[in-house]
Design a binder for these strands. Structure first.
Length: 1170
RNA sequence: GCCCAGAUGGCGGAAUUGGUAGACGCAGCAGACUCAAAAUCUGCCGUUCGCAAGGAUGUGCAGGUUCGAUUCCUGUUCUGGGCACCA
């Protein structure tokens, strides 16, 4: 009987399927074990040999755990939403659902052939409505939650609303820069829109404006981890920064927990490192520096803190005399006069002289050109008409000109025209609001429409607001001078407050809000042109060429400790999005700052003494501080805390932790993804009620994007407007608020469905919940997760966040999804090349392509064979191909093209010429070959496996040729699972020979049945038990390659002793079952068993069978092994010494000398030291 | 630039805690069986000197610790991966 793997494998695959052999129950008395693969995106290309590596490893481990008595969950599914299917739809007009289904069928077909033990009844597809219903449901949980600042966990948003109603923003004060503090009473009069806007700042899934990675070619936004080197991960298209309305996940709130909980996980250090870097926690301080523009008339004097105080005093005559900065000639006189005049008028002066000068003209113009709505309001509020409060119109406040201002109550009224909806204007408005809020102003906003259509309620609202502010601002002076408003402060973030005396300049991002207000007249042109330059540069250019660029604003900041003036620069190396968008530059300690200072000739202060040599910066924390005022003599490391404490005392700085990680962009302008269960009405996002889920995708004809960066769904009004009216009436069902609203037209990104799929496997058919609590409690965390490293910062981080949020909200009892993570290495392809030679500069007589064998080509390239040499060889092949004389005269050369050739046409390195000629529909049918030793040898290079490089190997072919068992074992035998290694089909025959050899222990080709029931000998038992131990250990530590080799050793040994005893062979089959399940099953049944081998108990290792009574000790002299001596294991040091010293070989090497020492390690070795 | 991982025969790799470096497999060489091939079996297989016995040398490179180092330490080169103006 021969080993007929095809027949055996088909037979058992069918049997397992029919018997539901791998069906798993959610109730069991056995302990549970959950083994998970990263589910595949079903691409059209199908599987290549690299894909199943991880699946085989997890399959072996699952089967092993089942043999060891565990109830093992080992499911598989498909990450079925995604961009490629949609791209394919655009190009070929096939609906993504159709092509995805087709691809899945193809994948399944390929997977089935390898003989995996998946419980296919638990299959999930993220694009199934019954699945994405729960993706949408989880989204709603995130939408309806916020991160509680002290509990540090997701909490229903209702709790936040309750706290706002009860005590205003007290609890969350200072947590969200975008939201100004408010009282409970204020909250109540805000109105729904304003309330919802505030709540949106807290929701874990939220919608907002932000700079996003926009990919024009893909027509969508991408998350940070989907952008690589300024181009899209998929397709490599350019990506630009664009401000758009987008959905986000507030993953930054979880940054600390995501970082700290890494400790709980059994992941590789490299993986943890990657997540740690991505989260990018840094500990430092924010420091406020006072800024003075070079023309400022404010007397900013030396000495700490005095500047602030000085500004709060009413300015006396001669204030300008104390100004440390001489005003420029000419214009100076007039300005000083103006400044003095304004400064002397305290009550309503709300801008610096500099600002006033610029704004005055605008204000005057604005007053003359009021809009209709503004005119109406002005009539209502002027002359203290409302409860005696004085309003001013177009009154400059700091750098802004609000429409109407009541300084007494610090209330500002804005009437917005349509242009306020534009993005840039919005940003500007936000910056202004932020500043005003910080300075205790309240704001009321009305649209033109509101004023024109319902003046009454507008006035009523103004009255109410003024009343509610009564007392709020009591004791707070509206006077700018008493508050020191004339000052501008620059907030910087630094991790090195200890170096504050070494600050030689400040750098702020070109986009920084302060740039326009601090730039001096003389520097304006330079700053403007620099900003133009920065805007002209794409993200890619910015990353590619890191030139030192920048511009001086003309303004200076003041060092709070020594009063030094520090010039403020702008430069693109400072990022607006990180920290405060401003840094204090310490060139003696920081590489970039040092280069910048050198480039722009900014003098460098040395605070490091000898530790700074003037030619390169030293970032040390261990030097002694010099030139650092009260810090002199202190070690930098220790000074950090001292400085921050001092800053805090002075009220101009505080400790601050920053994260590099940003909130995750969560919307895509695409069709093939989960629709958001959100209805927009009057600019408010209403969640769809759970009863409406799943919200499914409409059928569409076109996948082209909608208007204004919206997705294709925006083109389908029937779908978008399906909630304008619905029967039975929406209000009857208790959610009338969405009536008349429009559905969100973005869809969710690919990582939405994959962030929780491991939970659905636990209870895949549940229609009441994403999974029952009973199921998630039972299966709990994934015990072993196997997949590639490419998901290190995407999927793995999002899954962790979703799990934590679901845990916080009481839906899960665990807060980390994957307890143990194993990263399989990439299988690289081994590409083969042929070398095509084309003569240029001379005529040839044949059109045939000429291919030169690798070895000859090398000699040509190294100059060992001249051009004429090759031409001569071609002429031998094709008579009169070219004229050698003309060739020489014209100095003709060959154009050599290195062409990828399909690895499947190459045996090792030798090209199958006939197959090559038929390749690609006979493209090279007429090719001619210059051979070496009668063969055409191909060039070899290791590259990533990909279709375009023709280096993919299809597992189907190998399974057909060698069987699934051989294929599985060979993939494992290639090397350590975590290491990346090149694929080489050639070695598979060795593994196949091993299985055939195993087969021959049971069956003889001629005689048939070989096994017997004889008692095993001690030697045979030793072989068996050594193998049990080795397989068990190796499987436990995922050392599958060495386990395969142990099987080979075992079978070789058994064959050597001609062992055909079932008492030995049967346990070996159980050991082998996880690795080669089909052959193990077949032989197991051949031995007479009727149950499945997978249900057999794992053999128990018994040490007594492997104990030795003696050891063949290596004996070294001075560390060099000279001989081996067999000595009983019970012999101790003294006995060993006697035996060794009497040995002839040892005596020879001792040359009569006495050994200094004899090192004896029992069961290891003996070393004689001379 | 920063961080991490790695470097062992012609090739993939093994050596689990410092204890005989090269298990197992591929490729190669020699032989057996065969008319022949396939399949199977046996032997050899790091480099080098030597007829041999045996010796020298050898885990990227240079040092160190140790009776003993592929393994630990310091420095260095190269390869792969991650991050990349994150203050």
């Amino acid at each position: 009987m021969e080993y007929n793997f095809n027949e055996i494998e088909q037979k058992w695959q069918k049997h397992w399927n029919d018997a539901k052999a791998y069906s798993v129950s959610n109730t069991s008395t056995k302990p549970k074990y959950y083994v998970l693969d990263m589910f595949p995106y079903p691409s059209g290309a199908g599987l290549h040999v690299g894909h199943p590596l991880g699946y085989i490893a997890s399959d072996i481990y699952s089967r092993y755990k089942r043999l060891k008595g565990f109830n093992v969950l080992h499911p598989m599914g498909y990450d079925a939403f995604g961009l490629p299917a949609e791209q394919y739809a655009i190009e070929h007009g096939v609906h993504p659902a159709v092509s995805t289904d087709q691809n899945i069928r193809n994948f399944r077909n390929q997977l089935d052939k390898i003989g995996f033990c998946y419980d296919w009844e638990r299959e999930v597809r993220t694009s199934d409505p019954s699945y994405h219903k729960w993706t949408q449901w989880i989204f709603l949980q995130l939408f309806n939650s916020y991160f509680h600042p002290t509990l540090k966990k997701a909490t229903p948003i209702a709790a936040l609303v309750g706290s706002f109603e009860l005590e205003g923003s007290v609890q969350i004060d200072g947590l969200r820069a975008q939201v100004s503090p408010f009282t409970a009473d204020e909250w109540k009069i805000f109105g729904e829109k304003k309330q919802q806007e505030i709540l949106m700042e807290f929701r874990l899934a939220f919608c907002g404006y932000g700079e996003v990675n926009w990919c024009e070619a893909l027509g969508t936004v991408l998350a940070n981890d989907e952008v690589v080197n300024g181009v899209s991960e998929r397709g490599g298209f350019p990506v630009v920064k664009k401000t758009l309305r987008q959905w986000y996940l507030r993953i930054t709130d979880y940054a600390d927990r995501l970082l700290n909980d890494l400790d709980k996980l059994e992941w590789s250090e490299a993986m943890k490192e990657m997540q740690t870097n991505w989260i990018g926690k840094s500990t430092g301080a924010e420091i406020d520096f006072k800024v003075k523009t070079s023309t400022s008339p404010l007397p900013l004097s030396e000495g700490e803190g005095q500047g602030r105080e000085a500004a709060t005093l009413p300015l006396s005559e001669g204030a300008n005399e104390t100004s440390p900065l001489p005003l420029s000639e000419g214009e100076g006189q007039g300005r000083v006069a103006l400044a003095q005049e304004k400064l002397a008028a305290p009550r309503y002066f709300t801008s610096t002289a500099e600002q006033w000068k610029y704004l005055e003209q605008f204000a005057k113009t604005n007053r003359k050109n009021q809009t209709e709505a503004e005119a109406i309001i002005w009539e209502e509020v002027r002359n203290r008409k409302i409860d005696g409060f004085k309003f001013r119109r177009q009154h400059p406040v700091a750098g802004f000109i609000p429409d109407f201002t009541c300084l007494e109550q610090k209330l500002i009224i804005e009437i917005d025209g349509d242009y306020h909806e534009e993005i840039d204007q919005k940003k500007y408005d936000e910056a202004r609001s932020a500043w005003l809020r910080e300075n205790d102003f309240s704001m009321l906003r009305f649209s033109n429409d509101e004023v024109l259509s319902d003046l009454k309620s507008v006035v009523e609202k103004i009255k109410l607001t003024l009343a509610s502010l009564q007392g709020v601002n009591a004791g707070k002076s509206p006077s700018p001078l008493e508050r020191g408003w004339g000052e501008v402060t620059l907030k910087v973030y630094t991790t090195r407050p200890d170096t504050i005396f070494g600050v030689d300049f400040m750098v702020i991002a070109p986009e920084h809000a302060l740039v326009s207000s601090i730039t001096t007249a003389s520097q304006q042109a330079e700053v403007d042109s620099y900003i133009t330059y920065v805007k002209s540069r794409s993200e890619r250019e910015r990353q590619a060429e890191k030139k030192i660029t920048g511009a001086f604003t003309g303004a200076c900041a003041i060092n709070p400790f020594d009063g030094r003036e520090i010039p403020i620069w702008i430069s693109e190396y400072v990022l607006a999005g990180y920290g405060t968008g401003a840094i204090m530059a310490v060139p003696c300690g920081d590489e970039r700052d040092f280069k910048f200072a050198n480039y722009f000739n900014i003098p460098i202060t040395n605070i490091l003494g000898d530790a700074f040599n003037g030619t390169e910066p030293n970032p040390t924390k261990d030097a002694i501080l010099h030139n650092s005022g009260f810090l002199n003599g202190m070690v930098l490391r220790d000074a950090i805390d001292v400085v921050v404490t001092k800053l805090e005392e002075m009220g101009i700085g505080k400790r601050k932790i920053n994260f590099r990680m940003r909130d995750a962009a969560f919307s895509r302008q695409r069709y093939w993804g989960e629709p958001f269960p959100i209805v927009w009405k009057n600019g408010i996002a209403y969640p769809l009620p759970e009863s409406e889920l799943p919200l499914t995708l409409p059928k569409v004809d076109s996948y082209s994007p909608g208007p204004d960066g919206e997705g294709p769904l925006a083109n389908i009004p029937e779908w978008v407007n399906q909630y304008t009216s619905k029967s039975p009436s929406l209000s009857e069902r208790g959610w009338g608020e969405v009536e008349g609203g429009q559905l969100e037209t973005n869809t969710m990104p690919g990582y939405a469905g994959s962030s929780w799929y491991f939970l659905r496997y636990m209870d895949p058919h549940n229609s009441e919940a994403f999974a029952s609590k009973q199921a998630t409690d039972y299966w709990n965390q994934v015990d072993l997760y196997i997949g590639g490293t490419e998901h290190a910062v995407g999927h793995l981080l999002y899954s962790r966040m979703w799990t934590k949020a679901l845990h916080d909200l009481g839906h899960l009892s665990f807060d980390e999804p994957f307890r143990r993570l194993l990263n399989q290495g990439m299988i690289t392809g081994s590409s083969r090349f042929v070398y095509r030679y084309q003569l240029i500069n001379t005529s040839v007589t044949s059109e045939a392509d000429i291919f030169v064998s690798f070895g000859l080509d090398e000699k040509v390239r190294s100059g060992k064979i001249p051009t004429e040499g090759i031409a001569f060889m071609i002429n031998e092949l094709i008579p009169n191909y070219c004229n050698l004389d003309t060739l020489k005269k014209r100095n003709a050369t060959f154009l050599v093209s290195k062409i990828h050739v399909d690895v499947n046409l190459v045996d090792g390195v030798e090209l199958d010429i006939e197959a090559f000629k038929k390749w690609r529909n006979g493209e090279y049918a007429h090719a001619e070959f210059i051979l070496e030793d009668g063969k055409y040898i191909c060039g070899v290079e290791t590259e990533k496996m990909s279709k375009s490089k023709f280096n993919t190997v299809n597992p189907d072919d190998l399974v057909a040729k060698f069987g699934a068992d051989t294929f599985r074992m060979y993939e494992m035998f290639l090397g350590p699972i975590e290491q990346s290694k090149p694929w080489d089909t050639k070695g598979i025959e060795g593994v196949h020979r091993f299985l055939k050899k195993l087969w021959r222990l049971f069956f003889d080709e001629l005689k048939g049945k070989q096994w017997n029931e004889q008692e095993p000998t001690a030697a045979e038992l030793k072989i068996l038990h050594r193998t049990i131990k080795k397989i068990e250990d190796d499987t436990e530590r995922f050392s599958f390659n060495t386990a395969v080799s142990a099987f080979m050793v075992c079978v070789n040994d058994l064959a050597d002793v001609k062992c055909h005893k079932s008492a030995i062979l049967e346990p070996v089959l159980i050991l082998l079952a996880p690795y080669a399940p089909h052959i193990a099953e077949e032989l197991w049944h051949a031995l007479g068993n009727t149950t499945l081998v997978i249900d057999a108990p794992f053999p128990v290792f018994e040490a007594k069978h492997v104990v030795e009574s003696a050891k063949d000790y290596p004996v070294s002299i001075n560390g060099k092994v000279r001989t081996n001596i067999t000595i009983g294991l019970d012999v101790e040091q003294a006995g060993v010494e006697t035996i060794v010293l009497n040995n002839d070989v040892v005596k020879k090497w001792l040359e009569g000398k006495d050994p200094k020492k004899i090192v004896f390690v029992k069961n290891r070795m003996i070393n004689i030291v001379l």
